[in-house]
């Protein structure tokens, strides 16, 4: 792993509030270029809001956001975005190819229509996510995993340096999960930075090399092997974490978060005692 010196994403003192309630409080974040970073935290921790604030979709109450050392508005062309699959109406009258081409609209700018070049790029991206045969498919006929792959293809045609993906693994089948992981690795190999809102703590060490633990405040952020620790997780999840394997000195902690889990780990002297 090599990280260059300028931060791909630099967030300073970011605070976001919905009405009076703070959703993000005084977040500082430095994401080096070329990492795969997971944002993890319990429900309502502000993971999606952090992503949207960086993308300028949610107005911050305070704070500054820089992409490659410049404000986001100047760096849009460097950024690709995969929103949550459930954020759109999949009954919209259009087909897969058309949705993927939407990733080029920003680069095309006003008035210009997508043409052959955009079609070619879209087919190429669909190929990469294994959806080429679905190009003509009406989007309401896609499964959840296929919808997710269409969204990924749409981000790929943006040809960005930095990708933001909001829960791409949410409710997808195993095939799609593997396809997404392969894609993430491909993006890293190409030197891209990828930020992913992620729910499954177990797969964090396997899929990512950088992690930010969030719960309204930034709990920790850094290389997975340094900050993805039991102590930090307990800080982020307030103790509602079930440890599947007792962490040892050399092995990375392997944990599963269970938001509805009622066992309160902090009352126990040794975490491994409440292992399920």
């Amino acid at each position: 792993m090599s990280h260059s010196q300028i931060a791909a994403i630099e967030v300073t003192d970011l605070t976001v509030a919905y009405r009076e309630k703070p959703v993000l409080w005084d977040i500082d974040l430095q994401v080096p270029s070329g990492v795969l970073m997971a944002i993890v935290g319990p429900n309502g921790a502000g993971k999606t809001t952090l992503m949207k604030a960086i993308l300028g979709l949610v107005p911050p109450a305070a704070g500054q956001i820089l992409i490659n050392n410049r404000p986001y508005a100047e760096q849009r062309k460097l950024v690709g975005y995969v929103p949550q699959r459930g954020s759109v109406d999949w009954d919209f009258p259009t087909n897969v190819l058309d949705v993927v081409m939407m990733g080029r609209y920003g680069a095309l700018g006003w008035l210009r229509r997508p043409g052959k070049r955009e079609r070619d790029l879209a087919f190429e991206a669909l190929e990469k996510v294994g959806m080429r045969d679905f190009a003509d498919r009406q989007i309401s006929q896609l499964s959840g995993g296929q919808q997710q792959r269409v969204f990924l293809a749409r981000a790929l045609v943006q040809d960005a340096q930095i990708y933001f993906m909001d829960e791409p693994f949410q409710g997808v089948d195993a095939t799609t999960e593997r396809a997404i992981v392969a894609l993430l690795q491909e993006l890293r190999a190409a030197g891209k930075t990828v930020v992913v809102v992620h729910h499954d703590l177990q797969t964090v060490p396997e899929y990512f090399d950088w992690v930010t633990l969030l719960n309204v405040r930034r709990i920790a952020s850094g290389p997975v092997e340094e900050v993805f620790t039991e102590a930090n997780l307990r800080l982020a999840y307030g103790g509602r974490v079930a440890f599947l394997n007792p962490p040892t000195e050399h092995s990375k902690p392997i944990v599963g978060a269970e938001p509805s889990h009622t066992a309160n780990i902090s009352t126990s002297t040794r975490p491994s005692e409440v292992a399920s």
Binding site: L57, R76, V79, P83, F92, M102, Y105, W110, Q158
Partner: peptide, 22 residues
């Protein structure tokens, strides 16, 4: 007609349109 693709994108996925700078 002029804003065909912009209006389509706005209608389908507003936030993605905003993230692209529209």
């Amino acid at each position: 007609g002029m804003f065909w693709k912009e209006l389509k994108l706005l209608t389908f996925d507003r936030e993605f349109a905003a993230s692209q700078g529209f």
